[in-house]
Structures are given as C-alpha cells and as structure tokens.
Amino acid sequence: MDNIYLTPEHELLREQVARFIAREVEPYAAAWEEQGFVPREVLKKMGDAGLLGLAYDAEHGGGEADALTNLVFAEALSQSTFGGFIITVLVHTDMASPHLFHAGTDAQKARYLPGVTSGELITAVGISEPGAGSDVAGMRTNAKRDGDEWVINGTKMFITNGVLANLYFVAAKTGPGRHDMSMFIVEKGTPGFSVGRALKKTGWLSSDTAELIFDNVRIPAENILGEEGKGFYSVMKNFQTERIALGAMAVSHCNQALLMTLDHVRQRQAFGGTLWDKQVIRQRIAMLDAKTRAARQFMYHCAWAVTQGKDIVQEVSMLKALTGELVNEVLTTCQQFHGGMGFIRETAIERLWRDARVLGIGGGATEVMLDEVAKRY
C-alpha cells in the first residue's frame, strides 16, 4: 500500500537496507543467535555504508535526516526475522547515541560522534535497574561531585549492548528529589566500572544483554551529559524516538509473520482442503492485517508530527502500547496457524514469536504507556 509520507529517497534507503540484510545478516544470523551477540564487524560495515548516523549532522559523519527517514530505516531494518540483530542496531542508533547528539557539548560530539556513526564506537544506555525499569524515577544509582570528578555507584540491569559497547550513557541520581538525575558519559575500561554478567533471555538471542556495576567509578566533571539535574527530562524526550523505533519493529514483525502465515495456510492441507479454505482462518488473518495496516499509518503519522515539532508524547505512548500488544496478538495467532512447526526452534515464525514478547515490556511496559496516555486527557 502506498504511503503518503514516503519519497523516492525513502524507498532507496529501504532498498539499501534490504540489500545489506540479505547480504550481511540473514546468512549468518542463526550463528549469532547461538553465540549471543552480533559481531562488531557487522556494525562497522553498517557504519561504512552510512547507516549508523542518519539523523546526525554531516560534520560528524551523519546524514542529517529527519524523523520520517529514521523511521524508514527502523522499519526496513526490522524486515529481518532476527530481532536480536535489529535491537542491537536500534539501541545504538535510536536509543543510546541520541543522548549524545541532543545533549552533548560541541567538544563531546567532536570526540565521540564520528566513532558512533562509523561503527568504531558501539553505544549502550544505562537506565533500567533491578528495581526500576519503566519507573525511571525510581532508580538508585547515584553520582556525587568530588572536586573535578563525579563518582558513580550503583547497578544497571537489562542493558542491551552491555557487553558489546565501549561507550555508555548512564543515568544517575544527583539530588534528593525523585526526578533529580543526570546523564553521564562512561567509557569501557574506566576503573570501577564492570559488566557483572551477561543475561540469558527468552528472545532476542543475538543481542547481548548485561548487568552493569558501578563501584566508585570516577569520571571527569566534563563527562556530564547535558545540564545537571535535568537527566530525567532528557530520558523522557529520547523515549519518543525510542518508542517510534520499537513501534516500527513491532509492525514489521507483524507484516513478516502475516506473509509467512499466508504462504503456509495456502499450502497446508488439512480436512480435505487447505487451511486457507477455512473461513475462520482467512477472516482472522484479514482482521490482523487490517489492524497492522492501521498501526503502520498511525506510526508514520507520529514520525511526521515529530518533523513538525509537535508535542506527541500522548500519541507515541499510544503507539507503543498499541504495537506492543498487537505484535503479540499477531505472532501468537500466526504461530498457532503453523501448528507444530510453529513450536520448533530455528523456524522463523517461532523466532519471531519469542522475540515479539518483549515488545510489550521493553521501552515502557504497556500498562505504563497507557497511564502516560491517560494522564494527558
């Protein structure tokens, strides 16, 4: 279906990403699932292709693209059936490094952004904790000023790219108030900073997810990212980019699953005909396709609104809640229609089903998103 928001340049980007996935990802990604991470060389190839800094300024290797172009990239990337690869990239491009781009000083950008866009530096963002996930303000990690340094103590949990990254943007409390927090730049190898353990997950198997430990980690005072005490608002602002990207991932998973399932039910013989001959199955697929198309149009509207400078926290929260639930509805149904094969490891539909589950949790759980919506009525 045509999309009124897209231009020929957007379609060229989509085709470039599709070629990259076909050449550099799909033949190898099953092995990455086994090893638990995406090789750094793959991300470097993406950087060489100009795909890791689309939204950033040309001075630092970026493409100066708008939110719609960024959405096209996220959607095209998410045509892969390997969610672990997708989230490894999207955390770097849409969830971690935007903190540097939006809040960094000229000196910080000059030092780090060229490496971010080239793939030499892989980024992660440290916000979630064992007792504070969607409730960002409930974090306990703290940072205290000591002369020309900040001293960070605490633990972060569920950090995507936690092992792979060499540059981290870390949120820590810097005052007594619930929202008194700041963001900091921490490089891998800083004394006192360590990866506690790599976490085993149900899905996203080719993305590394880790616990991070900060034990009297001393960083230079100039490593604060943005204004002291304003980190909460920086995190909330960046969540809009993150949640649109996660919406793109969810919608693309829906599309992929529906296409696979259409192909399957048209061929699968049962009870004297194909599964497609069963009215309940074809009507169910039709309704899920309708919901997916509607969600996609809403997603593009949200990205367009960002390009217009509109305040759309409510709409993006709706989008995250809607797509996070929809992808689980679609994948559960599509897996069911695949029968026993839908429960076999190494089939694409089973992998998509596993990977879909976290999309109703990560980046803001559905219940939290709906509360964000309700607060703005």
Rank of each mutant, 00 (worst) to 15 (best):
Y5G: 10
P8N: 11
H10G: 12
E11L: 09
E11Q: 09
L12G: 04
E15P: 00
V17Y: 04
A18M: 03
A18N: 10
R23H: 05
V25Y: 05
P27Y: 03
A30K: 15
W32H: 07
W32T: 09
R40N: 07
V42R: 08
K44R: 14
K45S: 09
M46P: 02
G50S: 09
G53S: 06
L54G: 02
D57I: 10
A58P: 00
E64M: 09
A65T: 04
D66N: 14
L68M: 13
T69K: 11
F73A: 02
A76L: 05
L77Y: 06
G83F: 06
I87Q: 04
V89G: 03
H92V: 05
D94A: 15
A96H: 04
S97N: 08
H99V: 04
H102R: 14
A107C: 00
Q108P: 02
K109M: 11
A110M: 00
Y112M: 07
V116W: 01
V116H: 02
T117E: 04
D135E: 13
R140D: 10
R140S: 12
R140F: 01
K144L: 14
R145I: 07
E149L: 04
T155A: 11
F158P: 03
T160I: 12
T160K: 02
G162E: 00
L164N: 12
L164P: 01
L164T: 15
N166D: 13
Y168M: 05
Y168E: 07
V170W: 01
V170A: 07
A171E: 09
A172E: 08
A172R: 04
G175C: 00
M183R: 06
M183V: 11
V186I: 06
T190Q: 01
G192S: 08
R197E: 14
L199V: 13
T202M: 12
E211G: 08
L212K: 00
D215Y: 03
N223E: 02
I224W: 01
L225Y: 03
G226D: 06
G226K: 03
E227N: 12
G229D: 08
K230D: 12
K230E: 12
V235F: 09
V235A: 08
F239I: 11
G247E: 06
G247W: 02
A248V: 00
N255W: 09
M260N: 09
R268H: 14
F271A: 15
F271P: 02
G272A: 06
G272D: 10
T274S: 15
L275E: 04
Q279N: 11
V280Y: 08
D289V: 14
D289I: 12
R293Y: 07
A295S: 03
R296D: 15
Q297N: 13
Q297P: 02
F298K: 14
M299C: 09
M299I: 05
M299D: 06
Y300D: 02
C302S: 10
T307F: 06
T307Y: 04
D311E: 13
Q314M: 12
E315T: 05
E315Q: 12
V316A: 00
S317W: 08
M318K: 14
L319D: 00
A321S: 12
V327G: 10
E329P: 06
V330E: 04
T332R: 07
H338P: 09
G339T: 01
G340T: 11
F343E: 11
R345S: 15
T347H: 07
A348R: 11
L352S: 09
W353T: 13
R354H: 13
R354M: 11
A365V: 12
T366W: 08
E367V: 12
L370P: 05
D371F: 08
V373G: 01
